[in-house]
Amino acid sequence: GRAQVFATVVDTFLEKLVAAGSYQRFANCYRCFYRLQPEMTRSIYDQFIAQLQTSIKEEIQEVKNEGNLEALFNSLDKIVEEAKNQEEPAWRPSGIPEEDICSTVVPYLLKHKLYLQKVLKVKEEENRKVAESVLAGRDRIAELQQRIQARKHAWQ
């Protein structure tokens, strides 16, 4: 996993740095002091290495905590594992937000379209029923007109 690789790479870096800054090199650079106090030189060197290693490890831990890197590395490992059968390059942002937002909005538009189709159907059904009542009303009025005409003709 990424977390393991990260830890290994940092440890390797430290090892090699410490190896490069060997005691021989240190004593060679501080020759005058070494000649004066060889034991103290060793002690100072050991403290220098210890301090450097501690500071570097603390800094790495701080970076990991601040960035929540452990969790992110695990999550990314899972995502990469799930995509292992994908050979084609995956989608990437185009850099044009107006275009990229289309894909995000399309599902909502589809939902909205379905909703509108549904309410339109309900409205049409509602209107169909009202129209039936209207047609019945027209028939009734026509019938009343006929009855009035019949009464008028009877009087005539």
């Binding site: 995502i79 995509a83 050979e87 084609e88 390059p89 995956a90 894909s103």
Partner: peptide, 15 residues
């Protein structure tokens, strides 16, 4: 990796 799509971008694969 280039073949990996983040979960929040799955919608771009669908559409």
């Amino acid at each position: 990796p280039k073949n990996v799509l983040l979960p929040e971008d799955k919608v771009h694969e669908q559409y």
